[in-house]
Design a protein around this nucleic acid. Structure first.
Lengths: 139, 139
DNA sequence: ACAAACTATGGACCATTGTCAACGGTTTGG
DNA sequence: CCAAACCGTTGACAATGGTCCATAGTTTGT
């Protein structure tokens, strides 16, 4: 497909798609059997772009995503160093998601507090990592 | 406490602490009863900085965090608009964490696949949002 | 056939989030 | 007392992740 369709289907702008391509995140081929300069994006570029969105939500950089997406979508005979990288990134993302979850819990507590006292506004939210399910890890 | 101690206790550099302060994320007072220019950081700045780390892991910008931290740590009589902002941010963070979790699941699947086939490297990981607990939301 | 819509390329530009260096003043341990 | 370590301010610098513009060629609907 051409870049416009890909952009529409993934909600990623053309400029951003080209930016990703320049950085090696996705690939395209010269248009099959045409003489123009239009590039042709494979069907799975849609999937790749969706994964990239998720990976960014997980806090990974373009450089990291490039490596990881390369490991997903192609053969990966570099089991030794590749898996090491993968393991490090998993730990990193786990930590980040746990922290994000911690913050989300705080936001929800704050919202609850506001709902129950809509006029006099003093939040008694404090004491990091309290009891209950306050600091569950979600693994 | 002074900035050096705060930096050590939170693992946030002095420069970054000052950067946050310039952007209104934390406050300091002129040193109590001293004539020098040293600032004094309250004890709860440690907590605030920890929350900031978590909030960044949740994908929030400095500007957003400034607003939210202000709502936590001070009185918040603006229930109407404030809670609206809070609600939007909660939804945003929920979506981001769900996406991040999706990606983490992919990483783990990829790792499992690599472990079971350490030499011939073709990952048959595909088909977004599969069965099992693959796309649980963690809420 | 012709305008509207699409495409590629190149480089400029931007916001965000820090980081660093320089300079001069302050505190503190020995 | 003196050097080492600390502090504040200013302003430059940098990496990341895009976004925009101009220019020029291509496709497509009517």
């Amino acid at each position: 497909m051409r870049i416009g369709e890909l952009a529409k289907r993934t909600d990623v702008s053309r400029d951003t798609i080209r930016f990703y391509e320049r950085h090696g995140l996705i690939q395209s081929a010269p248009g099959e059997g045409t003489t123009n300069s239009y590039r042709d994006y494979p069907e799975d570029a849609v999937f790749t772009l969706e994964v990239i969105q998720d990976a960014q939500a997980a806090g990974l950089s373009i450089a990291d995503i490039t490596v990881l997406v390369g490991q997903f979508l192609s053969e990966a005979p570099e089991a030794a160093e590749g898996d090491d990288f993968l393991t490090r990134k998993i730990a990193e993302v786990e930590a980040r998601l746990a922290a994000g979850q911690r913050f989300l819990d705080m936001l929800r507590q704050s919202q609850t507090a506001l709902e129950r006292a809509p006029q006099d506004g003093v939040n008694e939210v404090s004491e990091r990592s309290g009891a209950g399910n306050g600091n569950r890890t979600c693994n």
